[in-house]
Simulated assay, not measured.
Amino acid sequence: MSSTGSVVLPDEEAMVAFGQVIADASDAHGVIFLLGDLGMGKTTLSRGILRGCGHQGSVKSPTYTLVEPYAIGDKQVYHFDLYRLSDPEELEFLGIRDYFDEQALCLVEWPDKGRGILPQADLLLSIELEGQGRKLHWTAQTELGQAMADKLETAVSE
């Protein structure tokens, strides 16, 4: 199972708006890995996803705290930024396994830093430069990810 798709997002506003589409596709459940170089828009996309889940406040990158939890009504979203992680074992001290349950949505920036500790992603989102904007690729890794990818494909084709 490896459904893929992509969309070109011309600016930050489009990135945030597509994050809201991703939120709808996920129904605030699952594990999404955000891949891309520094400055590609992973946190901007996360802001859009959080807004799509109903979050009204600011969204900061959890670069120093590693995780920022968001309780949004009956939804629980965890935004991870593992950029500064020096050893995946540090995640065990954070109690990482407690965050990944079927009722939560986990957004993970720099997931390669947690290799061997993190669970499998349902959906991989990869961001790269495309002219002045960004190209977002998605790849489903699980049945849940496949359902998300199908909804994203439908949204892009409308």
Rank of each mutant, 00 (worst) to 15 (best):
L35V: 15
I72R: 07
Q120A: 12
L125K: 02
D98R: 04
G39P: 00
E92R: 12
R47V: 02
A71Q: 15
P10R: 08
L124F: 13
S3E: 12
A121L: 07
M148K: 12
G52Q: 13
K151N: 10
F18V: 04
F100R: 03
R84V: 08
Q103A: 09
R115D: 15
F33W: 10
V156G: 00
F80R: 02
H55P: 11
D122V: 04
K42S: 00
Q141S: 13
K151Q: 14
R51H: 08
G48C: 02
E128D: 10
E128Y: 03
G57V: 03
I49F: 07
A17I: 06
E12I: 06
K75Q: 15
R84T: 04
E153H: 13
L144D: 05
A14G: 04
S58Y: 00
L105C: 01
M148Q: 14
A28T: 02
T139P: 00
K151C: 11
F100V: 09
K113A: 06
W110Y: 10
M40P: 00
V156M: 12
G145I: 06
D101L: 06
V7I: 15
G52A: 07
F93Q: 05
D81M: 09
L35W: 14
K42V: 04
I72Y: 05
D74F: 09
A14V: 07
G114L: 13
D11C: 02
M15P: 02
L45F: 03
E89M: 14
S126E: 14
R51N: 09
G30I: 05
R134P: 01
G145V: 02
E128V: 14
L38G: 07
G52R: 03
C106A: 07
I96G: 00
V108I: 12
S86K: 14
S6I: 00
Q146F: 13
E92T: 12
D11Q: 01
S3I: 13
L45D: 00
